[in-house]
């Protein structure tokens, strides 16, 4: 197991490469999901506001 993480002495190159890739790919997936949620919240707030001003 320790041998696996040592990567034959190349651990300082291999693992940062994998970590950065994992981070970048994760962020690129999470970003649009969060943006969509935020947009839906924003648009529904506008919609209820319009509804209210119409009923007044």
């Amino acid at each position: 197991m320790i041998e696996f993480f040592q990567m034959g002495g190349y651990a300082i190159y291999v693992w940062p490469a994998y970590a950065l890739t994992a981070l970048t790919l994760a962020v690129s997936v999470i970003a649009p999901i969060r943006r969509r949620k935020r947009l839906i919240r924003e648009l529904s707030a506008i919609a209820t506001q319009k509804e209210r001003s119409r009923s007044e």
Binding site: M7, G8, G9, Y10, Y13, V14, A17, Y18, T21
Partner: peptide, 16 residues
């Protein structure tokens, strides 16, 4: 398996 020339360092290939 590790590469016969590059050893374990070649494993970056799988993301590069």
């Amino acid at each position: 398996p590790p590469d016969y020339q590059q050893g374990e360092s070649y494993r970056i290939i799988y993301i590069h």
